[in-house]
Nucleic acid binder design. Structure first.
Lengths: 149, 149
DNA sequence: CCATAGTCTACCCATTTGGTCAGGAATTAG
DNA sequence: CTAATTCCTGACCAAATGGGTAGACTATGG
């Protein structure tokens, strides 16, 4: 089934969480600093930040005093966006579409396709329901007590 | 994130679904027959059935007229069991435990660990809520929900 | 004993994952 | 201008995983 979080997804989340926690001013944070704070390997982290930039989640500034900044408010960055930015779309299995009109080539296979796709939806929805701001809140201990979203 | 269903999980489900659909008598079905009905590569299917046997989901009989039979009633075989039998435990990421007492080595990383684990639970629960019998019902068109006419 | 059919072990190739490295290009300080 | 800083680009790499094959072995029934 393969429902493990890749290190990329995890690392990206950590980097962004760190960025959000230290977003005191609007001056950028260098990759080096982020790597130090999070304990992640710097060169690898660069790749990941680049992907996040490509997805429009962070902005970058080059040169002296440059670095990365969140492109939007943490409230407007969902965990689903983060994860799919570095790991591709959150979808269970690309075996083909459930060609829903009962035209299965073998027995009841489309029933299963429908199930996998349902599972993907469920997961995407769930991750979409959390924002980076939620993680910041939790990390600061202001846990809103098992949210009911 | 990696939330795709492996072919193994899918194949295992198909094989079992096929087995359940033709479970008219208690005489076993050979791997060759299952492969033919489902259109799956026979040698690969053998491996998968072996794993399912190891998990106690099917029983086998060797020799002439041998083959595989469901070990239990389809009602008592959950989709979660099938998937984890061939793909290992359904759990998001084994980075370590969320050492819940706020003793994160770096900033708020355990918050994320908690999230991944929550996601794994959600998924496992969801797949556990479906049984092979449910799939059989759906495949036969006795769809409890969208029943046309 | 012989054909059938499951079981086991090993191997194979392609892709993905996790990660490094060597420059190049932009920006700013001086 | 030039040098320092920092992001950017792209190649490269090792290991694991996924998907699949091949072949020998063993149990069973006739």
């Amino acid at each position: 089934m393969d429902v493990k979080v890749s290190t990329r997804g995890d690392y990206a989340s950590r980097a962004l969480l760190s960025l959000a926690l230290h977003a005191s001013e609007s001056n950028p944070t260098s990759v080096r600093d982020i790597a130090e704070r999070t304990g992640l390997p710097q060169p690898y982290l660069e790749q990941i930040l680049l992907a996040l930039k490509g997805a429009g989640i962070v902005r970058s500034k080059r040169g002296v005093g440059g670095g990365y900044v969140l492109a939007r408010d943490p409230e407007d960055i969902s965990m689903a966006q983060i994860v799919s930015a570095v790991d591709g779309p959150i979808a269970a299995g690309d075996f083909g579409e459930p060609h829903a009109d009962g035209a299965c080539d073998h027995e009841g296979q489309c029933v299963l396709l429908a199930l996998w796709s349902e599972v993907g939806d469920l997961l995407r929805d769930h991750l979409s329901s959390y924002s980076l701001a939620d993680m910041v809140a939790r990390a600061r201990g202001i846990q809103p007590a098992a949210k009911t979203r």
